[in-house]
């Protein structure tokens, strides 16, 4: 499947800090998708988990970018937005969710699976209630340790959990895109510009091959 499936599609991308800083996916992924002819709206909110997109919530930093415009990077005035309102405003063909690191509890001995299930299903049900197709992009490998105590075992567990719990959204497994530690990070979790470019290119390719994008393209 070529990347042409993305041409003409309207994509609403929401996620965590990986979409909230200059040089992150709000530039790398967003630019890739725009190059393929997609109409893209990207929103990032630092630290936001899935359930935080059900209502407006203040976060410490964020980013917002529409089409070929420049990313607006925000600090303390950044917020999430209710997914229902975003979908009603943008009317996207596909919603792309990039959330995983904010829900993996890297610094806790136990993975809070009940909380994660509660949060993930709240968002997927809110999206599916609008009959909008969706794709969930899981967390990538980082470098063990760092500020967030990201570690390979928990990343794998988080990804496996998401793979079985995001339906009816399609799942994109970012762990297939690199090896642990392959993409350089600044803090164990957030990548350098080169890392985000590699991740963004891999997501673009994977998105074009998802059932959600193929169905939206064929419509």
């Amino acid at each position: 499947m070529s990347l042409s499936a993305l041409a003409g599609l309207s994509l609403l991308i929401l996620g965590e800090s990986h979409l909230a800083a200059t040089g992150s996916l709000i530039e790398a992924l967003h630019d890739d998708l725009v190059k393929q002819g997609a109409q893209v709206h990207s929103i990032g909110a630092c630290g936001a988990g899935a359930q935080d997109w059900l209502a407006k919530k203040k976060v410490d930093c964020g980013g917002d970018r529409v089409g070929k415009g420049k990313a607006v990077i925000r600090g303390a005035d950044a917020t999430t937005f209710p997914i229902g309102e975003l979908i009603a405003a943008d009317k996207p063909d596909v919603v792309v969710v990039i959330i995983g690191d904010t829900m993996a509890a890297y610094d806790k001995s136990a993975f809070p699976k009940t909380w994660a299930w509660q949060s993930v299903t709240a968002l997927t049900r809110a999206i599916s209630a609008t009959r909008t197709r969706c794709v969930w992009v899981g967390p990538p490998w980082g470098k063990a340790g760092g500020r967030y105590n990201k570690n390979d075992e928990r990343v794998r567990l988080m990804s496996t959990f998401l793979a079985t719990n995001v339906a009816p959204c399609d799942y994109v497994d970012s762990l297939k895109f690199s090896k642990p530690g392959e993409w350089k990070t600044t803090d164990g979790q957030h990548f350098t510009v080169a890392g985000y470019k590699a991740w963004g290119a891999a997501i673009t390719q994977a998105l074009a091959n998802t059932p959600a994008v193929k169905e939206a393209h064929a419509k």
């Binding site: 909230a20 410490d60 930093c61 690191d101 904010t102 829900m103 009940t114």
Partner: peptide, 21 residues
């Protein structure tokens, strides 16, 4: 959840404890 600030402000990657019902 109580995030701290610095750079990309440090944020919690999950709750202090799992949910209960």
């Amino acid at each position: 959840l109580a995030p701290h600030a610095a750079g990309i402000p440090l944020y919690p990657t999950g709750p202090a404890e799992d949910s209960a019902f």
